[in-house]
Design a protein around this nucleic acid. Structure first.
Lengths: 119, 119
DNA sequence: TATAGTGGTATACTATAGTATAGTGCTATG
DNA sequence: CATAGCACTATACTATAGTATACCACTATA
């Protein structure tokens, strides 16, 4: 294989690939997105339940991150017109499928840690 | 399957899993790590070459990020005692294997974008 | 001798991310 | 009628990430 050809190929493809990677990194970035996703991974939860799951998060940050995740299509927010209102947050199907990426991250992270420690 | 059991399981495992995910996120976090990794993905490069690949990066940030990536075992830094010195940066084997994760991120990112646009 | 290139560092700044604390409107419960 | 819970918002702050600009020692080339 000619190395210059793979380099040329590399320069042709990656625009939309880089965008896709950045999309993925964005829904996981920051201190709280992963704990929030973890909290609602197995079942939908209400604001205060998530807050109790993540003891150190402030309501400001939880509110901010939930909004961002909703805008990015990761979660759905459902308001029930009880009195007073109750609100449920749930991962979208696409949001749930982030586990595919997280699984790979677990694999790589463990493998990498071993590789780094062993030398 | 009993939902309460999977929840209990979920609460037992994840400590080292979460650490592994955080390790992975850390080597990709920030504005410049991905461009730098991309720049040396196919072959090792010198400081100024990487800088030319990433036009808007300042030498301060490039230096800082390269150091961090080296500390995290992602890249190796080789100094040749030419006069003046030349320095080469190269992805470690473990660093190269981050492509497994990036590939999954591309897949998910593209799939997610389609899912979000279509609704 | 001036200019440019290599591989950076130093200092000072701005912008973004995250924290702390208080308070909102609503209602059920004691 | 005070307290507590729900789902937040507002304001002000600190900390971290990133930028701008200048500079360093070294050497080859014009």
């Amino acid at each position: 294989m000619n190395r210059t050809i793979s380099l040329e190929e590399a320069k042709k493809c990656p625009i939309q690939f880089v965008l896709a990677i950045n999309d993925t990194l964005n829904v996981l970035s920051g201190k709280w997105k992963l704990p929030i996703i973890g909290s609602i991974l197995f079942d939908k939860k209400r604001f205060t339940e998530i807050q109790r799951n993540i003891p150190k998060i402030t309501p400001r940050m939880l509110s901010k991150e939930l909004k961002e995740l909703e805008i990015n299509g990761m979660i759905t927010r459902t308001v029930y017109n009880t009195i007073p209102v109750s609100v449920e947050y749930e991962l979208s199907p696409s949001g749930k499928s982030i586990t595919e990426v997280l699984d790979k991250m677990v694999d790589w992270g463990i493998k990498h840690r071993k590789a780094v420690i062993s030398k």
